[in-house]
Amino acid sequence: MIAGRLTIEDRLAIEDLYAAYVAALDERRYDDWLALFTEDCSYRLVSRENYERGLELSLLAFESKGMLQDRIFGIRETLFHEPYYQRHLIANFVFTPDDGAIAVQANYVVIRTKPAQPSEVYNTGRSRDRIVPTPDGFRFAERVCVFDSELILNSLIYPI
């Protein structure tokens, strides 16, 4: 990154970061997913209703990499649930350099497929993230997924 300007290479590298992110989640490689965050990261999954009305409740709200790790433990060991596949599609990136970081917005759709069930649109919305350059490449410092979906289809176990 040169003095607040984003090069083509930066954009491609950030798109690669998102590709790695969705591949890790869709393939349930949660440790690989975790590695894409900074140590002092935050993650929020919040309904559009709460977000637009300035209400602070999130569906998931993690304030550190440790909390993300705890969620992974919950998924693997404690949360009883019917397993399902996730398939993320992310598009329409908007990149805005912001004080050494890059604000990235994008639309997303997550399709859920449960065992022996047809696929269904599970969660859809727009992410509003902050990406920072690190010695290991670009990483998520902040990820906020604001979902349109007015009803969660019963439960939500895995991160978006």
Binding site: L55, E56, L57, S58
Partner: peptide
């Protein structure tokens, strides 16, 4: 009020 969560349980 801090916010809402809405789910449909089958």
């Amino acid at each position: 009020v801090h916010g809402y969560s809405r789910q449909r349980i089958p």
